[in-house]
């Protein structure tokens, strides 16, 4: 156990991310080579003209040795050249940035929704520990983690769009269109976070510090929301930051359900068209966001929780 300064610890954590990033890029590079047989066959069909096949092979750099392809791929990524779509020749990185805004909006609204639901739920459950409200909150949490989002989405559409006619079925132009996808994407997160909030709050309230505060006559509300909350919400915040990236994984399915034109829908469209460079680009971008979110979670914990600095 040695006491490094917090800057050193953050720097170490930043450096540790580099090999992870290289690993991610490497796996994404090899994705193309997972296509069984010859990817060119898969793209053009086995009856294609030899000249077309050769052109496609060159476009994907498949005519070069694997190491050369790999170095070429890395160089391209660093220079902002993420390849071209083989369907419409559109630049992959440009298409990704076009679509990222929609996913970002959806993710932000879902995350906000999840926190606004989870923290009060966790609080009520902990405060009324063992009572009906606690059970109800935990049942919600169980339902939330168990319900698949590709079913929750259609059920919400059936109820709110088809039966009640309150909200649009899909797309993102109409007002209120973000509500159903955000609920669909945020529910599982809200369930996980509320569970964590409840457990962490109960743990914090059992501490001597909180008992002492109570003995000193500090008001119950202040103990819960100041003394205990500062400890209890720390793991919630960490988990939340960790889930920032996971939400992007869930967005692939949610966007497909609601035709929400973001990165997730782009991924699925690219898969259906066998637009392999586009698939690679989507997967890479989402994974990069995921790695950065994990990094952010660790750094935040280091800054906010002095105890963690000794563990590292």
């Amino acid at each position: 156990m040695c006491n490094h300064s917090i800057y050193q610890l953050i720097l170490v954590r930043l450096l540790q991310t580099l090999p992870t990033l290289l690993g991610v890029v490497t796996l994404v590079f090899f994705l193309l080579h997972l296509v069984p047989g010859d990817p060119v066959d898969a793209l053009l069909g086995e009856t294609a003209q030899a000249a077309d096949r050769e052109a496609m092979r060159q476009a994907l750099h498949l005519d070069q040795p694997l190491m050369v392809q790999y170095v070429h791929y890395l160089q391209g990524l660093l220079h902002g050249d993420w390849g071209k779509s083989i369907i419409d020749q559109h630049d992959v990185l440009a298409r990704l940035t076009e679509r990222a805004a929609a996913t970002f909006r959806l993710a932000m609204v879902s995350l906000l929704l999840a926190v606004l639901m989870a923290v009060p739920l966790g609080y009520i459950a902990a405060r009324r520990h063992g009572q009906t409200a606690d059970t109800a909150a935990m049942v919600f949490s169980l339902l939330g983690v168990s319900i698949p989002n590709f079913w929750l989405g259609p059920m919400l559409i059936l109820l709110f769009s088809v039966t009640l006619g309150w909200l649009p079925v899909s797309g993102m132009e109409q007002p209120g269109a973000i509500i159903l996808p955000a609920i669909t994407l945020g529910t599982a997160l809200a369930a996980i976070l509320s569970r964590m909030a409840r457990a962490a709050w109960l743990e914090a309230m059992a501490l001597d510090a909180c008992r002492t505060a109570r003995a000193y006559g500090v008001s119950e509300l202040r103990i819960w929301w100041w003394h205990a909350a500062r400890l209890a919400l720390l793991p919630v915040l960490t988990l939340f930051t960790l889930q920032l990236g996971a939400v992007l994984g869930g967005a692939v399915i949610t966007e497909t359900v609601f035709d929400w034109p973001g990165l997730g829908l782009l991924t699925i469209e690219a898969i259906q068209r066998r637009d392999y460079p586009m698939v690679q680009g989507c997967v890479l971008l989402i994974a990069l966001c995921y790695v950065l979110a994990n990094l952010l979670a660790d750094v935040l914990t280091l800054i906010l929780d002095p105890r963690q600095r000794h563990v590292a």
Binding site: P19, T20, G23, V24, T26, L27, V28, L31, L32, L34, V35, P36, A42, G245, A246, L248, G249, G250, V252, I253, T267, I271, Y276, V279, V283, I286, A287, Y290, V291, N294
Partner: peptide
Amino acid sequence: MRLADIVLSFPGILLAIALAAMLG
């Protein structure tokens, strides 16, 4: 463990989608 770290660098469902899509 580096191998495990790489797998964990992806949201699980996304990696499964990517692998299944590429494998056919």
